[in-house]
Design a protein around this nucleic acid. Structure first.
Lengths: 200, 200, 200, 200
DNA sequence: TATGAATGAGTATTCATTCAT
DNA sequence: GATGAATGAATACTCATTCAT
């Protein structure tokens, strides 16, 4: 009979959860360890039994969040679909991630490229990007994406997506399912070569 | 004849400059006041003669940066231009801001909607948004923007723009003048209603 | 059949041994209990089953070491020997102790008269000193020791002895059997009244 | 008009003094920085303006104490004196140091060869020893010191000296001027070759 | 007015000790 | 009995802010 009690008994999980929440809210430097301990419902020392320093902790959170994103983004991806459909699928997976894991989403936005991220964290970051990058390169070669560097395409689409959800949690906007699909179409339009000026 | 020493500029400006630089680099919470004083080349106490607290200082920086953005964005705006041309103009003003004031740009991205921003800062934020919002609303009514909330359109375009420049200073990308224009076209495509299904 | 695992020895002994080692190396305040537990190969809590606090533990180590010194110093002491021979014997017993029990020797040097030593520890300290003191007093009355307080004689000889061995484990010196005997002679010279100026 | 006030205004000096006192009493590891600050009558942060860490502080104290010892020991040393007289002079200088600077004396005894001492501290340690070592070597070559390694001679005499003063501050003994001279004679006896067996 | 030394509450982290298993 | 995870007070150190000069 283990840990049937009220509070979830898994301390590391509680600590990660609290860290995710506070880092997403206040950022790494803005979060104090004693505060974090209180939120996790553990003693301050307990954190250090599981994570040897604040830096190690933030990297653990980063890697958890990034892995989750990778799984949600790349799982059940039907690469055989036509480019347009695949785009929709990617968009929806992203949206599902942002919806189901808002803290992870905000955390990742806030802790990009920070100096305390270690090599493992950076490696996972790259792991997420590579398949998307490949998709962009392939689309471009197939003539169904604009003639821009894959990196630029990704930056525009990812940026637009992030902008949309930031606007929501900033209170400017409520994203309905319908709006989500409209935004997807808008982004597809910025991704695929425009038909403007394309002959008769 | 006052202060003929090393740097002649006036103190408040030096302090604001140092604050802008460090906040943009390390964030508000990650920046220490004594460090900031050293960067500004003034005594720690001097900061407090001009800005009564760290919060007041960050708000001053925010307002300076946001005002600069507003001026660069809205100055010499030819509202009588056709929507498409106005879009290009806005895009170019934004790009000029990001290019000429990279610190202000990064600072603003990093300090959105933080709890230490006061009412004045939030008001200025809105001041910047309102004309853009009006442009979106008008475009939509004229049928030259997609049928989405103006807030969503702004979020998508602003997000894409920010994504592009973040990719640049993250080292993923080098933004040439040509690329900038291609990106503008892509964003316009996501802004204007797609011609899909529109047929004779 | 209990605890057939790795180290078979009994726990209290293992704990005392680890405490002796670490206290001798790093001092009382410089030694952490969890570290000590790891060195002893026991759980942290186990220490407290046998020693109710760190202070109790250090006193146990002190008493063990001091008792060992007492035994080695006073056992098989031929009090009937002439003063000179007895001096040599004491010197050799001391040397044997320092050689065979270097940790105990270092520990005792490092933890003299510390405020956490309890009355029992202080009592044992005195028990060791009393017979030596008696030897000094007797020698002096017999005219074979210098005309100084017994305490001063003891301090000089003990100090010289300790200095010699400290020099060895500080790496300044290697104490051969021959050197040990030379040193003994030198100390005897400082103990016994000089013949200088003694004439008919 | 500077610092005429009750308490000496020199913060670094006050901090060094408090550090000397507490380290001499409780040892390095046994002394807490906030305690030290309170003793020095300064804020905890003030210590760090002058000494960048506890280690830097203990090295500063060590170097101050060792330099003082060196000056008192080697100053006005009449190297042209006969060996016996020079020995007395060294002894008296040492005694003066132990008398006038009991805290420095205790501190040095307690912090020998500790791992936190830096190269500068170790260098000064050697600087003190070298001249004494030279004296021993010269004496030995002149046939007025026992035929032992200079290091052993030093260890015995220094050890005896330290033993004597430790006995005093441990309360076993009161060292009168007369006793000090008797002890000096005893130590000289252990230093110089015994006349035993030398006869007509 | 400007300074920067000084402060002490606050930070990350450690450690003697406890207690559920 | 033995364990080692958990604790929270204590530790070394930092930082926003003040104030004597």
């Amino acid at each position: 009979m283990k840990a049937p009690a009220g509070k979830p008994e898994d301390k590391p999980a509680r600590i990660l959860q609290a860290a995710l929440t506070l880092f997403a809210e206040r950022g790494y430097a803005g979060t104090a360890m004693p505060d974090l301990a209180r939120h996790a419902g553990v003693g301050a020392g307990t954190i250090y039994r599981h994570f040897s320093s604040k830096e190690v902790l933030v990297n653990a959170v980063f890697q958890h969040a990034k892995n989750l994103l990778r799984e949600q983004l790349l799982r059940e991806l039907h690469l055989e679909l036509p480019t347009r459909a695949l785009f929709t699928q990617l968009w929806q997976q992203l949206a599902r991630f942002a919806r189901e894991h808002p803290l992870e989403f905000r955390f990742l936005e806030l802790h990009h490229h920070q100096p305390y991220l270690d090599e493992d964290s950076r490696a996972i970051e790259r792991q997420v990007l590579v398949p998307i990058w490949a998709y962009c390169v392939a689309s471009r070669q197939a003539g169904v994406a604009r003639d821009m560097p894959a990196e630029a395409l990704m930056a525009l689409i990812w940026g637009a997506f992030v902008g949309l959800f930031k606007a929501e949690y900033s209170g400017y906007l409520q994203i309905s399912e319908h709006l989500l699909m409209q935004a997807e179409e808008a982004c597809w339009a910025s991704f695929s070569p425009s038909s403007t000026g394309v002959g008769p």
